[in-house]
Amino acid sequence: MSMEIFGASPDGQADIDAIVALVAAVEHAQQNELPEAFMELFSRRDPVWTTAHGMRLSGWETISEFTHKVLPGAMKDSTASYEVVRILFVRPDVAAVNVHQRPIDRDGRALPGVPEGRPLYVLAKQDGEWKIAAAQNTQVKGD
Rank of each mutant, 00 (worst) to 15 (best):
V20F: 01
D77C: 00
M75L: 01
V84W: 03
E36F: 06
L34N: 11
E36T: 09
T62Y: 00
R45P: 00
S9C: 01
T51H: 06
S64L: 07
P10Q: 11
G59V: 09
A24D: 14
E27N: 08
E65W: 03
P72K: 07
M55P: 00
V85K: 13
T62F: 00
F38A: 10
A8V: 08
E27R: 13
P10Y: 07
M75I: 00
V70K: 09
G54A: 09
E27W: 05
Q30L: 13
R44E: 11
R56I: 10
M55R: 15
H28C: 07
E4Y: 04
T50S: 12
N32G: 06
G59S: 08
Q30R: 12
T62V: 14
T62L: 01
A21M: 01
F66H: 14
R44F: 03
G54M: 11
P10G: 10
Y82T: 01
A74R: 12
M39E: 05
V26Y: 13
H53V: 09
L34H: 04
S64E: 15
A37L: 12
A74H: 07
G59K: 07
P72V: 06
V26S: 04
V70G: 01
F6Y: 15
E27T: 05
E4W: 03
A80N: 11
Q30E: 13
E33N: 09
V26I: 13
V48K: 06
I16N: 07
E33M: 09
M55H: 09
D11G: 10
E61N: 11
I5L: 13
V23F: 02
V48D: 06
H28A: 14
H68E: 12
F38Q: 13
A25G: 08
T79S: 15
D11C: 03
I19S: 02
A18P: 05
L22M: 10
F38R: 12
V70T: 12
A14R: 13
A25L: 06
F66D: 07
F42V: 02
F6N: 11
Q30D: 12
H68A: 04
V26T: 07
N32H: 15
G7P: 05
E27K: 12
S64V: 01
S78W: 03
H28Q: 14
E83F: 04
I16E: 08
R44A: 10
P35S: 09
V85Y: 05
D46Q: 15
A80L: 03
H28F: 10
W60F: 15
F66L: 05
P47K: 02
A80Q: 09
P10K: 12
T51E: 06
S58R: 15
I19M: 04
Q13A: 12
H28V: 01
V26L: 13
L34D: 14
I63L: 10
V20Y: 00
F42P: 01
V85P: 00
A18I: 05
V84T: 13
R44S: 08
F42N: 02
N32Q: 12
H68Y: 09
T51I: 06
A25S: 14
F66Y: 15
V48Q: 06
H28D: 14
A25H: 07
A37S: 14
F6I: 15
D17M: 02
A29C: 05
S43F: 08
T50P: 05
I5E: 04
E83W: 03
T62H: 07
R44H: 12
A37H: 10
